[in-house]
Design a protein around this nucleic acid. Sequence first.
DNA 1: AATTTGAATTTACTTTGTAGAAGAAATGGG
DNA 2: CCCATTTCTTCTACAAAGTAAATTCAAATT
Lengths: 109, 109
Amino acid sequence: MGRHTLGALEQAVMMVILALGDGAYGVAIRDELSRRTQRDHSFGAVYTTLDRLTAKELLVTHLGEPTQKRGGRAKRYFTLTGEGRKALDHAVNARHELESGLGLAGKGA
Amino acid sequence: MGRHTLGALEQAVMMVILALGDGAYGVAIRDELSRRTQRDHSFGAVYTTLDRLTAKELLVTHLGEPTQKRGGRAKRYFTLTGEGRKALDHAVNARHELESGLGLAGKGA
DNA sequence: AATTTGAATTTACTTTGTAGAAGAAATGGG
DNA sequence: CCCATTTCTTCTACAAAGTAAATTCAAATT
């Protein structure tokens, strides 16, 4: 879309990465996302988003080492770049701006 | 997308309609949206969104009467349906839920 | 080496988002 | 009167984001 606005899933994924700190790799992100969002997200959805964000340089990745357990293949971890962080903050602010003034819901869960 | 989640623009448009109360017709919505969002939205973007939301029965429309000024053709007004209101509240809550716990920006403009 | 398992990638497709031009209904001026 | 002008809406076409499902990979087990 337009210039470089973040889509809803993109924002959500970035937030989840922040929440996970290190330990933010595909499967964990997928799970945490589904938890926080209360709906299922397929791996495809998550990974394509992750790829897009990486391509936009809002995320960087580094490969971890294999763990010693069955199927413990090397995980690909994700972190926000400075730009990514900035973009997210911007998006969040814009959203708050938009919501402000309306008498909208706001209970905490 | 999945079942019937609201996209970002869809939510924004609904919020603007709430903000405008009566007086929520195409052009006004477009303008207020651009104002609150600080970016331009074409009529095309706005009207297609409006149409889609109406098709989903989250909005209803009624045609006003022509006004007595140049080009004062009848406006089409939009209002949220009960379902629409519910869907919006739901989306907003989900968003808050998602944001909670992270140390994200939050200044009021 | 074949199987199982946790993880990542690919692919195909739907829904949303965006843009711009064209069409309709109203009034005012010459 | 009829045409230019203004305000508002519709149409059409396309780009981007979201989703789902199947496939591929690599490591450990047996």
